[in-house]
Design a protein around this nucleic acid. Structure first.
Lengths: 352, 352
DNA sequence: CTGTTAGCGCATTCAT
DNA sequence: ATGAATGCGCTAACAG
């Protein structure tokens, strides 16, 4: 009728070892109270005499006690943790986004666990599985493939509240928060044509990601709507290197277009770098626009005119969507689009 | 003599609710075996008949079972998790570093939990505490302050294997892995002086971080050793904006130096941007070097000559140091310095 | 206000 | 090869 034999190879040697962490049990014993009282005193969520509360706190402090979130989590059925899976943490865009996400989550008392899928579907599946097995409260994911990510993301969504961020999986019934890519591309094109440009080329990510598709479609639609000449666009990955390659391709094709609409800032930076090396002047010879509004846009020379994503709003919307899903698991799925804005800088000419 | 009353408001409704995850208990029941056998069958670490193993696996699959890492962690006393605290995840340098860390840890079966201290000592303390309470196996930390981070980092180090990364806390008895800043600055200066530059100015982070101190000391020492003229250096934060301000300050001072040695790529990019706006040509009017070797160096125009940190080696060394500390908690502390290299590009002239 | 007790999900002895 | 039982650290009933 007792709680079994307590392990005895601990407790005495404790001080020298140090690394074997102090348990609530030990704090309670040292304070001369029951483990329940110790728990209450420390969490403060329940009635305890101010005196014992203080005493227990002092003892805990002296012993260097730290709650074991694993124990608490098991009991509570959950730790207060949210997970996020991004394709490449080293892309400044995701770095900035995570930054904001963490801010908003912190306000609501959640910790953020970050995982990197390296843009690989297999790895993405692994990371999502890990988060599920950790029993995180919710998951944000930037799917690495608009189609191939389906199974893993869909399965995860049945197990835990999930919100797709920035990119989405085609036909997946799950919440999504991202920028209005159509509006963004339109802003860029409107700005360029206002300055007199008519021959535009899109250099962007391919159809593997939803973002790539949307920006391509937006570009094609807008060009058609404005009856601009149709040129051959170039598609690849959202990498600096791709931007450089694309620029070289354009140069080899003959006469340059009036303007190059890049799929993101990274690609735009690559394009500009390659053009300058070929002694092509931006914006007088050819104008360039970016997308995202990362620090890269400010580092470029000339500084990049770019479609700015509202990072903070994006993060706020995403957290809101997730908490809504947590509260109402059966609410209808929402696709939330935040409006981008255009930041005009030096890579597009004012010299009409 | 039984295992108590098992909760009964579950199990039957399960299918519709879905979100209440399947337990090992339920798998065992459905498979008609004991929970112990189910556990063995699934982990595969113990003897089970191939037949039951297969059967259990099938049932688990059908039920959509996922281990509860919280439960396993409590039992095992630990989950296989490593934590890392960085000052700013949106700095490409840390993004890249985390990327590599994750790679090396994955090979050893560890998950990485990333936390952002925003360069704030209070927040850093919070994040470290969170990791300790989660009972992570080990911690990497890039201390945000060479002195004020002492208490929190020191305390954490007594509780869990810890390795300081990139930056360190002064006089803290704990492992450290970082680049050889002295060597790096020397490489930059040697390159610049070889091209004939003599009047050098350092524009770098202040003494708040160990990196700032070391690069400043390295610069001062090298300048002295080479008997170069001493100029007034400029110190601030590792931000794009600081680089711009510093460049303006230099311009207002009168004649420019032969070369500007920037504390990192971000600062260098800011310096270059501001110089170009003032119609100062790089490298013919003034040369500029960076530090880190991030993608920013390639985005700059002209491309930045920079001291490249070997990210992969850094990460590998760090993981090695951590596992060593985990295996031998009482081994002497080591300060590991990896050697940087110089990547010469366009921001320093070859036109001697 | 405080103590007793049960049990979260899992892996692991110890029997069989 | 399998099952029964125990406890990891913690909190939440339930008594007192």
């Amino acid at each position: 009728m007792e709680s079994g034999c307590r392990r005895r190879h601990k407790g005495e040697v404790e001080d020298s070892v140090k690394r074997a962490s102090v348990t609530l049990h030990e704090v309670a014993a040292a304070a001369g109270v029951s483990i329940a009282t110790a728990s209450r005193a420390l969490t403060g969520k329940d009635r305890v005499s101010a005196q014992t509360a203080e005493h227990v706190a002092a003892v805990a402090e002296r012993l260097g006690y730290r709650v074991n979130l694993i124990g608490r989590g098991l009991r509570a059925g959950t730790g207060a943790t949210i997970g996020v899976v991004v394709p490449v943490i080293s892309n400044p865009f995701y770095g900035e986004l995570i930054h904001r996400l963490e801010d908003h989550l912190q306000q609501r008392g959640f910790d953020l666990v970050i995982a990197d899928s390296h843009g690989d579907v297999e790895r993405e599946r692994d990371r999502l599985r890990m988060l599920v097995e950790r029993r995180v409260e919710g998951v944000f994911v930037v799917p690495s493939d608009a189609e191939l990510s389906f199974d893993a993301v869909a399965d995860t969504a049945t197990r835990v509240p999930l919100v797709q961020l920035d990119r989405r999986v085609i036909d997946l019934p799950a919440d999504f928060v991202g920028v209005d890519n159509h509006r963004g591309i339109e802003l860029a094109i409107a700005h360029l044509t206002a300055a007199g440009a008519t021959r535009l080329v899109l250099v962007s990510g391919n159809d593997v990601t939803s973002v790539g598709r949307e920006r391509r479609e937006a570009f094609e639609n807008t060009v058609r709507a404005r009856a601009l000449p149709r040129k051959e666009n170039i598609f690849g990955e959202y990498l600096l290197r791709f931007g450089e390659e694309a620029a070289r391709t354009l140069l080899s094709r003959g006469p340059l277009p009036d303007a190059i609409v890049a799929g993101d800032d990274l690609v735009a930076a690559g394009v500009i770098a390659a053009l300058k090396r070929a002694l092509v002047h931006v914006p007088s010879d050819v104008q360039v626009t970016g997308f995202d509004g990362t620090m890269l846009a400010d580092v470029c020379e000339p500084r990049l005119t770019t479609v700015v994503q509202p990072f903070d709003e994006l993060a706020r919307e995403a957290v809101e969507a997730l908490t809504r899903r947590m509260d109402q698991p059966d609410a209808p799925y929402v696709l939330s689009r935040v409006a981008p804005s255009l930041r005009v800088a030096e890579s597009t000419s004012a010299d009409h």
